[in-house]
């Protein structure tokens, strides 16, 4: 940030001095890169949808411990959830700064996003490691396999996002004159927020609702729901 060469930078407070992106004519009127990002995010819903479903199917089916109730730490994860949420806020501020051509602010918000995202990953590394020490390994039971698969893939998404943001930050620090473009930051932001909303779902289902599950004596939630539905309809 301190290295930003302001002599080549457009005046920071004049949004129109630097068109945030080159408007291109497309048949839909939507920039293709942005469109593709949304299509990808739509398809990523299916990816996480099936991983979440797999977890729900095997919920409460493990025959050996540790069970979620022995090991899931809801308070800690509430904090990390909050941290990820705040990183989304920092990200959206970064996008706004990029749209306004304010390179200095952009770098600051990007760095804030990266730090918060890294803290989230730190929490996850801590959690995984603790689980391992407590004897919950990937192959221990149905809970651990589905849990690690789902949250692991989410963590991989976050990690990828961190690299992406890091690249943008480096570019922004090297090229004060309007690169990365508002659109570049915007698209990275879309990915970052998506990772956040996936975590919102995971946090609710795996921690707040499923975090107190025990062994197979627990009535299966899906079965409960199904019975409720059939009882209501019939």
């Amino acid at each position: 940030m301190a290295h930003v060469d302001t002599t080549h930078a457009p005046p920071a407070h004049e949004p129109s001095a630097h068109p945030p992106e080159h408007e291109e004519e497309t048949t839909t009127g939507i920039n293709h890169r942005k469109l593709l990002m949304w299509v990808f995010l739509g398809s990523d819903c299916l990816f996480f949808g099936s991983l979440i479903a797999t977890y729900m199917v095997y919920r409460g089916q493990s025959v050996v411990g540790p069970y979620p109730k022995d090991i899931i730490d809801v308070p800690i994860t509430t904090i990390s959830t909050f941290v990820l949420l705040m990183s989304s806020f920092a990200m959206v501020m970064g996008v706004a700064a990029a749209r306004n051509g304010n390179q200095k602010r952009l770098v600051q918000w990007l760095i804030a996003t990266i730090i918060l995202g890294a803290i989230f990953i730190g929490f996850q590394v801590y959690e995984f490691n603790l689980f391992r020490i407590e004897g919950l390994r990937y192959e221990t039971n149905l809970f651990s396999s589905t849990f690690f698969t789902l949250t692991g893939f989410h963590g991989a998404h976050v990690t990828l996002g961190l690299f992406w943001l890091l690249c943008l930050t480096i570019i922004a620090m090297r090229n004060p004159a309007g690169r990365p473009s508002g659109l570049d930051v915007d698209i990275a932001g879309l990915y970052w927020h998506f990772v956040d909303i996936v975590w919102i779902v995971i946090f609710t289902l795996l921690y707040l609702i499923g975090g107190f599950d025990a062994g197979p004596e627990v009535e299966h939630a899906a079965v409960q729901g199904w019975q409720w539905i059939t009882a209501t309809i019939m």
Partner: peptide, 26 residues
């Protein structure tokens, strides 16, 4: 259009998840 694309993906994801849960969980 972007709403439609995303919501379509979301609904597909939900349908896939729900069918998996009903099929293998119920």
């Amino acid at each position: 259009l972007l709403w439609q694309i995303f919501v379509a993906g979301l609904i597909l994801g939900l349908v896939v998840a729900l069918s998996l849960v009903v099929l293998f969980g119920v």
